[in-house]
């Protein structure tokens, strides 16, 4: 038995959520391998091979992977991939598990966290994503994984990545922040969010927002917290 974790990175760093996924994979038992795909990711592959618990790192580099880059929610990237991989394997995938009961039984939330569902997966291959905030991050050192190049398949040319406009911020990333300051409609305007930014900078916190505040245009949508936004887990 073995588990493959798809690593997320921005060509320089691993996305923290990958480390949470590795912890989840280790809980399943068996060998843990990581797949890393990108355009220039030798540095990240190096980091990844040091992560405790990882046995093998598979590296696939190709121009076609451009844009398949820095993303992380139970990440849009994971959700993007999960379905496609699972359908090709003809297995039912499981999104965002929060607990591993046994190698085939998982807990996940339904109805925006208003109920918890325990699911037994009778598929031969189990395809799932983990809610990063429910698992500890695997230590970045102490491991010694072998690296292996895999040749990427030829691009099929049915879609093309054009550009990305990312919101820049020096504050901690929302999904992994230890402290989160969140605002809603009560702040009445985008300008008033400055109050939260100032507070957050003092607390070294990330700033989140309710759907109402995002819908009203006070702040960009990548700040949204909740069912359709990001899952936060402050300590």
């Amino acid at each position: 038995q073995s588990t493959l974790v798809v690593a997320e990175h921005n060509n320089e760093h691993l996305t923290p959520i990958t480390l949470n996924a590795i912890t989840a994979a280790c809980k399943l038992g068996g060998d843990v391998s990581c797949l890393i795909a990108g355009t220039d990711c030798a540095q990240v592959a190096e980091q990844l091979s040091k992560v405790q618990g990882v046995k093998k790192v598979l590296v696939a580099q190709h121009e076609a992977y451009k844009g398949l880059l820095p993303v992380s929610r139970t990440s849009v990237l994971e959700l993007q991939l999960l379905g496609r991989v699972a359908a090709k394997l003809d297995v039912a995938p499981i999104s965002e598990i929060i607990e591993i009961k046994s190698p085939d039984t998982f807990v996940r939330t339904i109805y925006a966290g208003n109920a918890l569902s325990t699911v037994k997966c009778n598929e031969s291959v189990k395809v799932f994503t983990v809610r990063g905030t429910s698992f500890e991050a695997a230590p970045l050192e102490g491991g010694g994984a072998a690296q292996e190049e895999v040749s990427p398949s030829a691009p099929v040319g049915i879609s093309e990545w054009l550009e990305q406009t990312l919101t820049k911020s020096d504050r901690p990333e929302l999904t992994s922040a230890k402290v989160v300051v969140s605002g809603g409609r009560g702040l009445k305007s985008g300008e008033n969010f400055k109050l939260l930014y100032d507070l957050a900078d003092k607390l070294n916190a990330a700033v989140g927002a309710s759907r109402a505040a995002v819908d009203a245009g006070y702040v960009p949508n990548d700040m949204q917290v909740g069912q359709t936004g990001k899952i936060v887990a402050p300590v």
């Binding site: 844009g67 820095p70 993303v71 992380s72 929610r73 990440s75 849009v76 990237l77 049915i158 879609s159 093309e160 990545w161 054009l162 550009e163 990305q164 406009t165 990312l166 919101t167 999904t175 960009p220 949508n221 990548d222 990001k230």
Partner: peptide, 16 residues
Amino acid sequence: KVVREVDGGLETIKIN
């Protein structure tokens, strides 16, 4: 042409 909501902001792709 699809503008997608990704974690860090927006991404634009073109698909057949």
